[in-house]
């Protein structure tokens, strides 16, 4: 199925981005993970009508984008896929919330427009922060960062295992679905009918079980005793401290001081 094959190839693409060595990729994964969480958290804490005051936080994804040398086209493509749900939920705001708010040209604007714009901007910044965290770090280093930050080894290992077998199991499923499509006499349909999906999934699932058995044997053969050991995290450098401190302080500043408005006052002398 196109969706599955496409998903796998876009994971590969994101991975190849993360594999390059760039300025952003030299920052410790723990620092980047914590900074991203903090930025998204602070972003969420802004009142729902704020638009302009959110803008300074865009610096975070922009810095990752530039120092990570991530192609803008890739980011935009991913953003387009990620934003529709947010848009759907916020779209009606201008009608649901018509209370007037001030505008520079006198005529008041419905408050809903502000909250809609705010939601979109939040979506843009949060989504691109997460995507760029991945594109500059890679899932494996994020996994190890999670384990270094105290998340259970079972969970972290599960993430890494899932990621490892995505391609093996995903391609098996994609091939099975493709074989089914080829024999379906080409009738275009909206998705796989449930009774056929059930058969497809059961076939692939049975093979997946067998694979799990073999993998387990391979683990046992190499001394696995039920306890997962992850290699220790890489060294933490001064630059990681600086990076993290800056990205804790800057969002806080942006939250406490309306930077655009202050700038605007200075510039216009208002």
């Amino acid at each position: 199925m196109a969706g599955l094959a496409h998903a796998l190839s876009s994971i590969r693409r994101a991975d190849s981005l993360a594999g390059r060595s760039t300025l952003a990729s030299t920052i410790d994964a723990r620092a980047k993970l914590l900074a991203s969480l903090w930025v998204v958290g602070v972003l969420a804490s802004f009142p729902s009508y704020e638009v302009a005051s959110l803008l300074p936080l865009a610096l975070f994804p922009v810095v990752l984008l530039v120092t990570g040398e991530v192609p803008l086209g890739w980011l935009c493509g991913r953003l387009l896929l990620a934003l529709p749900f947010v848009l759907m939920v916020g779209m009606l705001n201008p009608w649901l919330d018509p209370s007037p708010m001030a505008s520079p040209w006198g005529a008041p604007i419905a408050a809903g427009w502000f909250s809609l714009a705010s939601i979109l901007l939040r979506g843009l910044i949060a989504v691109s922060s997460a995507l760029l965290l991945l594109a500059t770090t890679g899932i494996i280093r994020i996994g190890y960062a999670m384990s270094a930050l105290g998340l259970p080894a079972v969970l972290v290992n599960q993430v890494l295992f899932l990621y490892r077998y995505l391609f093996v199991v995903g391609e098996e499923l994609a091939r099975t679905v493709q074989a089914w499509q080829l024999r379906r006499a080409g009738k275009p349909r909206h998705g796989v009918p449930p009774h056929q999906l059930k058969l497809l999934l059961a076939a692939v699932l049975a093979r997946t079980f067998q694979r799990a058995m073999r993998i387990h044997q391979a683990m046992l053969a190499r001394g696995f005793d039920g306890q997962l050991r992850l290699p220790s995290a890489p060294r933490w450098h001064l630059r990681d401290t600086v990076f993290l401190l800056f990205w804790i302080a800057f969002p806080l500043l942006a939250r406490l001081v309306d930077i655009p408005l202050t700038l605007g006052r200075l510039l216009t002398g208002a």
Partner: peptide, 10 residues
């Protein structure tokens, strides 16, 4: 089958 044996991410 090496795919069964290479189960770690790198």
């Amino acid at each position: 089958n090496p795919d069964d044996q290479l189960f770690m991410p790198t």
